[in-house]
Simulated assay, not measured.
Amino acid sequence: MAELNPVSPRKRNRRNLPWILFQWILQVIFAFWLRYQSRGKEHLPAEVGGLMVSNHQSFLDPLLIGLPLNRPVSFMARDSLFRIPILGPFLRYEFVIPISRRAASSTSFRAAIQNIENGNFVGIFPEGTRTEDGEVQRFKPGFLALLKRTDCAIYPIGIAGAFHALPRGAYFLRPRPVRVIFGEPIPSTLVRDYCERGAEKELLELTRQRVSECQQQAEEWVLPEHIR
Results as ranks from 00 to 15, higher is better:
A2C: 01
L4Y: 11
N5H: 04
N5M: 01
V7L: 02
S8P: 00
P9Q: 04
P9N: 05
P9M: 08
R10D: 10
K11D: 14
R14S: 04
R15K: 05
R15N: 09
L17H: 03
I20G: 00
Q23V: 12
I25Y: 02
V28Q: 05
R39Q: 11
G40Q: 05
G40E: 06
G40T: 13
E42Y: 03
L44C: 09
P45R: 14
E47S: 14
E47W: 08
G50M: 13
L51G: 04
M52A: 09
V53P: 00
N55S: 02
H56F: 08
F59H: 12
F59K: 12
L60A: 14
D61F: 03
P62F: 14
L69Q: 11
R71M: 05
A77N: 00
L81K: 09
L81Y: 02
F82R: 06
F82L: 02
R83A: 10
I84K: 10
L87R: 03
G88L: 14
R92F: 01
P98I: 08
P98S: 05
I99V: 15
S100A: 10
R102D: 13
A104L: 14
T107K: 12
T107N: 09
F109G: 11
I113H: 04
Q114E: 15
Q114N: 15
Q114C: 08
N115Y: 09
N118C: 12
F121V: 10
V122K: 02
F125M: 12
P126K: 03
E132P: 00
D133N: 15
R138A: 13
F139I: 13
K140A: 03
K140I: 03
L147Y: 02
L147R: 03
C152K: 14
A153E: 10
I154N: 01
G158A: 08
I159Y: 08
G161Q: 01
F163S: 11
F163Q: 12
H164I: 10
A165N: 05
L166E: 10
R174N: 04
R174E: 08
P175N: 04
P175T: 07
P177N: 05
P177M: 15
V178A: 02
F182Q: 03
E184H: 12
I186F: 03
P187E: 06
S188R: 14
S188E: 10
T189M: 09
T189L: 14
L190V: 13
Y194C: 10
Y194R: 09
R197H: 12
G198V: 14
E200K: 15
E200I: 08
L203A: 15
L204Q: 05
E205S: 12
E205N: 12
E205M: 09
T207G: 05
T207Y: 11
R210Y: 01
S212V: 00
C214S: 08
A218E: 04
E219N: 07
E219D: 05
E220G: 06
E220F: 01
E220M: 09
E220L: 09
W221P: 00
W221L: 07
V222E: 04
I227P: 00
I227S: 03
I227A: 02
R228P: 00
